[in-house]
Design a protein around this nucleic acid. Sequence first.
DNA 1: CTCCAGGGCAAAT
DNA 2: ATTTGCCATGGA
Length: 301
Amino acid sequence: MPTSNDLFIPMPSLFSFDECIWFLNRNYDDCLHRVSDGCIVKTVAPGGELMLVRLTQEGAKIRAEILHGKNNASQKKLLEAYIRQWFDMSQDLAPFYALLKKDKTLAYMVKEFNGLRLVAIADLFEALCWSIIGQQINLTFAYKLKRRLVEAYGQHVEFEGERHYAFPSCEVLAEAQIDHLRSMQFSHRKAEYVIGVAKAFAAGEMSIDLLRSLPDMESRQKALTAMKGIGIWTANYVLMKTLKDGNSIPYGDVGLLNALSKHGIISERSDTEKIDAFFKKYKGWESYVVFYLWRSLAAKV
DNA sequence: CTCCAGGGCAAAT
DNA sequence: ATTTGCCATGGA
């Protein structure tokens, strides 16, 4: 009997595949996945094995087709775990929605963004590089920089005449030259930071397991910010996007402040008291409120 | 032309 | 301890 290339993952309650797709699509040109009517194609590397998968929704399940790569049972198991983490499928959103409903200003989000999950960047190294690239520049330009980096250093899978890229490994980027990144319009600093972080990963000085082994959020933040180019914003961003720490807040984030002021929660960007008071209402769900606030900044397509 | 983008660092107060 | 100048570029 031939092995099937399909994997079906049942969707949890309060889950919307369309909302997750919407987030991945937004208005930006992301080189690490393609979205076209209800379908996502992306390279992934669960367990270090490069694959190309296509995700669609079929009834109450997500169908993952393996377009390239191993399709044996153990690899499928890794792929399923990857997808469940990617879309935060193991989380029960009911408690979060209960908190939102108590908040007059944000209660509309339960209906408006129903089933939106905190979409992850599964790989810590990629998440760190991406946040360094995105620091202080507009996202359109940030995605351009990422594309140049990925197409220069990343592996790709060819499928139906198109190249699907994976984010470069730390070993490859550790050998990259600053001048080369400069020619891609990275600033000198950003080039240094990305290569420096790559070297730390390649040398085994930083890894997701290392972070997970640390007892609390503070020590994780400390370990991350010890690297050049990683400040508190970036540390919190990756703790939220990769480690799925429920209570990490990217303080000072421009988008967050804009969303808070747009909802009339703060009037001054420096009003830390009001910000603290706001997040107090969302203990344990701080990351999710931030994610939903970011979501609220973009018009629904 | 000016200002600001999903900040962080190092030098100067 | 807190503030300031700088980075690189594109879009509003």
